[in-house]
């Protein structure tokens, strides 16, 4: 092909200019802002060194709580979502009937926006659970979302419900890639279902687990919409996750500089997760 410089840039620039304007420039600018006292309103932006970072780690209990909450919550979500997703994938690839319908139902929550899902579950937890409590008197259904524990589990149920179907799709793709003759050979050799699952299916699905684990981890780490519409961080900020904490620091308390410093820490954590994944999948490729 004849190499035309003009052609190259003509094709690359339209998307690249917008990418630079909304991602690259603000990201670099934002790192700069994290060292200032920017309040978002005036133009008086004073350089304050690393004092925002010091403040976050020493004075800001809410941030520490949001960080720990996000980490613990994400680990729990990752375990539950992948376990449920994998079991659902086994179920819909089994000999059961009506699996197309099941797939549709399991995946559907994933399509609906987080804001709608949060409000839907608010109705379920507060109104429907309340009605069940009134009818049966079971303590379990009492006052959901009004204390720390039920708010935590409420958010957990919502996210697992939403993401399990997504993980299921990834595992289905991998399970269907397993050649039938391998499974048949194992069956003829006398392997029972449990043995086939643990010694044939699981090792062959392993690459998908890397994808599933990290995808659910990063999705959960960045969670915002569901957090906002289900609990809005309440009660008493106990369910406030990182993204919501950053938003509130900026727009509720007008500490833009501090919010930006938190965002930089957030970026570092997400990057470490991303690079770990890259390393693991590269190693796997070598082994195979």
């Amino acid at each position: 092909m004849k190499r035309s410089k003009l052609g190259f840039w003509g094709f690359v620039l339209p998307s690249f200019v917008m990418f630079a304007v909304v991602v690259l420039i603000p990201a670099l600018w934002g790192i700069g802002y994290s060292f200032t006292s920017w309040n978002g309103i005036g133009n008086d932006v004073a350089f304050v060194g690393i004092s925002n970072y010091i403040k976050i780690f020493t004075e800001d209990g809410d941030f520490r709580h949001a960080f720990l909450f996000t980490a613990v919550f994400s680990v729990l979500v990752v375990i539950c979502v992948n376990l449920v997703g994998f079991l659902l994938a086994l179920l819909v690839t089994s000999k059961a009937k009506g699996t197309t319908l099941m797939r549709g139902a399991f995946f559907m929550p994933n399509l609906i926006g987080g804001i709608l899902l949060g409000f839907t579950w608010q109705f379920i937890f507060v109104q429907a659970f309340g009605a069940i409590y009134n009818a049966t008197g079971l303590e379990f259904f009492k006052n959901w979302l009004s204390d720390t524990k039920t708010s935590f589990f409420g958010l957990l149920i919502l996210v697992v419900w939403q993401l399990a179907g997504y993980m299921m799709l990834i595992y289905i793709a991998q399970i269907q890639n397993i050649p039938d003759d391998i499974l048949e050979a194992a069956e003829i050799d006398g392997a029972n279902y449990r043995q086939r699952l643990f010694y044939v299916v699981l090792p062959l699905v392993a690459p998908a687990f890397t994808i599933g684990l990290f995808l659910s981890l990063t999705t959960c780490f960045k969670l915002y919409d569901q957090n906002l519409s289900l609990t809005n961080g309440g009660p008493y900020n106990s369910t406030e996750m990182l993204a919501l904490n950053i938003y509130n620091t900026a727009f509720k308390y007008n500490n833009y500089g501090e919010a930006q410093a938190k965002a930089v820490i957030f970026l570092l954590v997400v990057s470490v997760i991303g690079l770990t994944q890259l390393n693991i999948s590269k190693k796997k490729e070598v082994e195979m």
Binding site: F19, V21, V22, V23, L24, I25, P26, A27, W29, G30, Y33, G40, F221, K222, Y224, L242, A243, I246, Y247, A250, Y256, A259, Q260, K262, A263, V264, F266, L267, V270, S271, G274
Partner: peptide
């Protein structure tokens, strides 16, 4: 850039 969370660019983006 797929690693950059939206919260990281949000504030300068609004200004820009």
């Amino acid at each position: 850039a797929t690693l950059i969370p939206f919260q990281c660019v949000m504030l300068p983006l609004v200004r820009l």
